[in-house]
Design a protein around this nucleic acid. Structure first.
Length: 268
DNA sequence: AGTATAACCTGTCTGC
DNA sequence: TGCAGACAGGTTATAC
């Protein structure tokens, strides 16, 4: 479900309230959530500690409890919210009866525990690629990542290259950059590659401004829908007219996943 | 090493 | 109404 803009929106919504809250207890309702440590160790490490910060790396949320941090990936249908949902997998009980719920219909979400000063060694985080909006995101590094004959859309979904894009924003970014999703990454011109480099953070920033894209499940920490779905230009719009040129938007399949494009604006 | 497929789950929607 | 099949915002183990 959530891509970088949705996770960032959830992060901001949580951080505005939860920093400083002391954890009194936690309840794991679905053990499959735990990726690397037992419920017992998790409790020992974070109960009694206060949240010092909420951070994000790619699509991962990082709850900083001081010496230890909890790293959560919401995958397709995970929700982290002050409102209880219908598929609760974890409840964090804070001071003054405050609660944070992790709900996840499809049960793909994961939770890892790591020492805060060794987060970059944690397996899910170790191999992530460059992070948009940080100083690691440079044109020089981006151009190196494109040195592959792989289709550009599939490359953009590879979290080891650029971290944070998912199926919605990969299609949107390629539309804005006027690049066909089936083009080879190493076949892009220098100008196209630079355009793509600039467009990625532009589209993501605009989505964050609009609190992300709600297709069905995604909600902010306070339970609200995003608004960027109203600004999508191609994703989910097969058969509709391109807002730029009027051509009919197409849906194709790449690696078992849907891609959307305007054949006129994004010639092969 | 890069790349394709299956797998992990549950729910919703579509067409017969 | 019922039911089979397709599809869904993500990643990863496994097989080439």
């Amino acid at each position: 479900m959530p891509e970088l803009p949705e996770v960032e929106t959830i992060r901001r919504g949580l951080a505005a309230q939860i920093v400083g809250w002391k954890l009194h207890d936690l309840l794991i309702k679905d053990g499959r959530l735990l990726g690397n440590r037992s419920e017992g160790e998790l409790k020992v490490r974070i109960i009694g500690r206060a949240i010092e910060a909420i951070n994000r790396r790619a699509k991962f949320l990082i709850l900083d409890f001081g010496e230890y941090s909890v790293v959560i990936h919401l995958r397709m249908t995970g929700q982290l919210s002050f409102e209880k949902g219908d598929h609760t997998r974890l409840i964090l009980f804070f001071q003054e009866a405050k609660r944070l719920y992790l709900d996840d219909q499809r049960r793909f979400a994961t939770l890892h525990l790591a020492k805060s000063n060794k987060l970059t060694e944690l397996k899910p985080l170790r191999d992530l690629g460059i992070e948009p909006f940080t100083k690691s995101y440079t044109l020089e590094r981006f151009l190196k990542l494109l040195n592959s004959k792989q289709e550009i859309k599939r490359l953009l979904l590879d979290q080891r290259k650029v971290a944070g894009l998912g199926n919605i924003y990969a299609s949107e970014v390629l539309f804005v950059s006027r690049i066909h999703p089936q083009r080879s990454a190493n076949g892009l011109t220098k100008a196209e590659a630079e355009e793509l480099f600039l467009t990625i953070p532009e589209v993501l920033a605009k989505a964050i401004e609009n609190q992300g894209t709600t297709i069905s499940d995604y909600r902010t920490a306070s339970g609200e829908s995003g608004q960027f779905q109203e600004l999508l230009q191609v994703y989910g719009l097969a058969g509709e007219n391109c807002k730029v040129c009027g051509s009919t938007i197409e849906k194709i399949e790449q690696g078992g996943r849907s891609s959307y494009l305007c054949p006129q604006c994004q010639p092969i």
